[in-house]
């Protein structure tokens, strides 16, 4: 499976944020999306999640050599600030979600199985989500996004405000999830990107560009990424 973006463009007023985003993502890999502040990473995600209307271009999923358009269920989107319906308990939110997606979700697992998987403690499962901590809300959001098994998982700086333990749990989880799907992970933290991601993609001047690691060691690779971001800045 491949997730293909073709000539995607988006502008706000006169500012062309996404100029010509053209890229094919392979399933089974985690892509680290790097870019300078204001480069348009969140805009790109919002376009892919259809929160924003694109000006031009499109994106599709290629399965067995055939292309098809992207449906809402293909995309999972985890935001940096977790948003969960605060009037529900964790269990209720999960139940509601499973009800809605009865047809597409594996039926052999119970709600508690899912909680186990993300190590959400039994005593927290029946608390209102408004009383959840930041990290737990984040886990809930992640959980909902992975249950539906989307083909493309977009993660917008998801680990930045988590404590080290939760962050490590999430990393392990993401690695275990990468099979059969495209994971695109936007971050500002270079080390995290190098540690977690299989490929590094730069968003610069409204275009996506892969930076091949080849046989560089981590430090050389870092320098290359920074140079690439800098150079393009001076074009």
């Amino acid at each position: 499976m491949r997730f293909i973006i073709r000539h995607l463009s988006k502008h706000f007023g006169k500012k062309q944020v996404l100029k010509d985003v053209d890229f094919a993502f392979e399933s089974g890999k985690i892509y680290g999306l790097l870019g300078r502040n204001g480069a348009g990473k969140t805009t790109l995600f919002n376009c892919l999640n259809r929160d924003l209307k694109v000006d031009g271009g499109d994106f599709c999923i290629e399965e067995d050599g055939k292309e098809r358009s992207v449906t809402a269920t293909d995309i999972g989107y985890v935001l940096s600030t977790p948003t969960v319906p605060e009037f529900l308990t964790g269990r209720e939110f999960l139940k509601f979600f499973l009800d809605i997606n009865r047809d597409s979700v594996r039926a052999d697992r119970s709600i508690d199985d899912y909680f186990e998987e993300l190590s959400i403690e039994p005593e927290d499962r029946d608390k209102l989500l408004k009383d959840y901590s930041h990290g737990m809300k984040n886990k809930m959001q992640m959980l909902i996004n992975i249950i539906a098994r989307p083909n493309v998982l977009l993660l917008d700086e998801p680990l930045t405000s988590l404590d080290v333990v939760v962050a490590e749990e999430m990393k392990t989880l993401l690695r275990s999830l990468k099979k059969d799907r495209v994971t695109i992970f936007s971050t500002h933290i270079m080390d995290l990107a190098l540690d977690l991601c299989d490929e590094i993609v730069l968003l610069n001047h409204g275009e996506l560009e892969a930076i091949p690691k080849e046989n560089l060691d981590n430090d050389e690779f870092k320098t290359r990424i920074i140079d690439a971001l800098r150079e393009e800045d001076h074009e």
């Binding site: 809402a72 995309i75 948003t83 319906p85 979600f97 997606n101 909902i144 996004n145």
Partner: peptide, 18 residues
């Protein structure tokens, strides 16, 4: 404030039939 604000970030919630 208490419902759509959060649920609108999930794609299943935005499907036309939903």
């Amino acid at each position: 404030m208490n419902c759509d604000h959060s649920l609108l970030t999930y794609s299943f919630f935005k499907e036309p039939k939903m």
